[in-house]
Every structure is written in structure tokens, then in C-alpha cells.
Amino acid sequence: MKASDLSRLVTARTERRPIALVTDLGSHEQALFEAGNEAQSLSLSPAQRDAVAEALAANRSGEIEIEGRRLLVQARVPDPRLIVVGAVHITQALAPMAALAGYEVIVVDPRRAFATAERFPGVTLRHDWPDEALDAVRLDARSAVVTLTHDPKIDDPALDRALRSPVFYIGALGSKKTHAARLQRLAEAGFDQAALARIHGPAGLAIGAKSPAEIAISVLAQLTSARHGQPTR
């Protein structure tokens, strides 16, 4: 492996870009494979190129044998990320649960008394306003946003940014009435029905959740279903 390729693999992870290192196990030639740079120096056939792209999309590392060629694909795909807006009681349950499920968790709350290290040990906390915070973290297709404050001043700017991004899940806590009022405000701000339909509101599966931990479970279950594109039943 070339040190320059290794350096690019490491940088891609910090920048949250999917990338793979492809090794021809016959010739030992190697090249990086990512959007816009698909291991050209290996002269992959279309079928080989597709197989590598599919492995990368599925975050699947290992050997692929195709058209008599043995290719080792080392896929590096960024972890899914959950941005929770509102450092509330439910968040104290949701943050560690989501971390266990493999998410990088970021909690955003401009109210410093809520988002404290004592209440959220080990969690990345941001105290800027949600629109600024979400701009800074760069929402991508492997990110999810959940708003939990019920306070339009805090939740709405976050939903605005989430709706303008390719995040795979948007959830907003609040009663049906709160949610209807929220949709009304966002519609007035210019979002159409298709955009608003992306918001899961009230967030979480209907499993009769009552306690903060149970509500966290229902939200995490819905998030899991969205992540894998698997409808709930």
C-alpha cells in the first residue's frame, strides 16, 4: 500500500466520504475507488467496476472473483450519524442507545444548562443554534436528525436544515396537534407536501412507549427501519 493512498483513506473517513482500496490479488496493483475516481489505473471492466461499486455501497469488504480476476475490496464507509436536537430527558436514553446501535451521536442544544457533560457523558455536545450546528456538521445521506425540544424556536431551524439535506431520516417529537402546527409553519416557510412528508411526526413507532427510555426505543426502531429501507409491520 502506498503511504499516499493510506493518507487519502484516512482523510476520506474524517471527511465522511465513502472510499475503497482495490487490490488486484494477481498483479498486486492497487488503486483507490471513490466517486469521480474509480480506480482507473486498474482498467476495470464495466462488470468489475459495478461489482466494486456495489460492494462499496453495501460497505462490504473482501475478495471478489469476477471474470477471472481476483479483486480485494477494502471498503470504508462513514458510520451512520444521529443528530439529536434537544438535550432533554429522552435524549439521555436515546444517545447511549444509538451509540450502541453504531451511530455517531451529536446532541445540539443552545441551552447550556441542558447540554452538559454530566448529563451526557462521552457525547459530542454543541451549544450553537440548530441551523448553525447542522450547517457545521454537514448533513449527508448517512445522517439522521431528530428534534425533541417541542420548542419551535429550537426545533424549526433544525427541521429547515434537515429538509434541505439528503438525510435518511427526520423525526420530530410532539403531539399530533403540535405536529400539525409545525407542518403549517414549515409550509408557510415554503416547503411543499413532498418535503414535509419526509418528517416522521410524531417521531417513533407506535409501541405504546411511555417512559423516556421507551420513547427512545420507539424512535431508534423507526430510525433502524428507515436506515435499512425496511417498512415496519
Binding site: 484516512v10 451509540a99 451521536v105 462521552g122 459530542t124
Partner: peptide
């Protein structure tokens, strides 16, 4: 949060450097 597995390639790079 602390879930992320240690990135061994990051270590490889720092050792090389």
C-alpha cells in the same frame, strides 16, 4: 460518541509518519 472502532489505518499512518 465512544462507539467507533479504533481506526487501525490511522495508526498505520501515524507510525509511518
Amino acid at each position: 460518541m465512544m462507539h467507533q472502532e479504533e481506526d487501525v489505518l490511522q495508526t498505520a499512518l501515524s507510525w509511518k509518519e
